Amino acid sequence: MKKFVIECSNCKKKMKIQNKPAKYKCPSCGTIHKIGRIKLIGISIKSFFTGIIDTIRDIKNNMVYRYNSAKATYKYMSQLKKNMKNDPNWSNYRNQQREEKQMRDANKKSFKDFFKKKVS
Rank of each mutant, 00 (worst) to 15 (best):
K39N: 07
K23S: 14
K39E: 14
I43G: 08
K20R: 15
Q18K: 13
L40K: 03
K14Q: 06
M15D: 03
A22T: 12
K23F: 04
I38F: 06
N19F: 09
R37Q: 14
S44P: 03
P27F: 15
I38M: 10
L40W: 05
I38W: 10
S44M: 03
K34P: 00
T31R: 10
T31Y: 12
Q18S: 15
P21F: 03
Q18V: 07
P27S: 03
K20S: 09
C29I: 02
N19S: 14
K14G: 04
H33M: 04
K16C: 05
K39S: 10
K14L: 11
Q18I: 09
Y24E: 06
Q18D: 14
K34T: 08
K20W: 08
I45P: 01
Y24M: 03
A22I: 01
S28C: 08
K20F: 12
K34Q: 07
P21T: 07
S28I: 14
L40N: 04
I38T: 13
K34L: 07
G36F: 06
K39P: 00
C26E: 02
S28L: 09
K25W: 01
K16G: 04
C29K: 03
A22F: 11
L40M: 08
Y24D: 06
I45A: 11
I43E: 05
I17E: 02
S47K: 09
K16Y: 05
K23A: 10
G30A: 01
C29W: 03
P21H: 07
G42V: 00
H33R: 04
K46M: 12
I41V: 15
S28G: 03
P21A: 15
M15K: 04
K34N: 13
K20H: 13
P21S: 14
S47F: 13
I17H: 02
G36K: 04
I45R: 15
I38P: 00
K23D: 14
K16H: 05
K20V: 13
I32W: 01
S47Y: 02
N19H: 12
G42D: 14
S28Q: 13
R37H: 07
C26V: 03
K46R: 13
Y24F: 15
T31H: 13
C29V: 06
N19I: 01
T31A: 10
L40V: 05
K34D: 04
S47I: 01
I43H: 03
N19Q: 11
K14I: 00
I43R: 02
I41E: 15
P21G: 02
K39Y: 00
P21E: 11
T31I: 12
R37P: 06
I38D: 14
I17G: 06
I45C: 10
I35F: 08
T31N: 13
K34H: 09
G36S: 11
G30T: 01
K16A: 09
A22Y: 10
K46W: 09
K39G: 00
I41F: 04
K39C: 02
P21D: 11
K23G: 04
K25A: 06
K39F: 06
K20I: 10
I41C: 07
Y24G: 06
K23Y: 06
S44Q: 12
K39D: 11
S28M: 06
N19Y: 07
T31Q: 13
S47M: 12
K20E: 14
I35D: 08
S44N: 12
G36M: 01
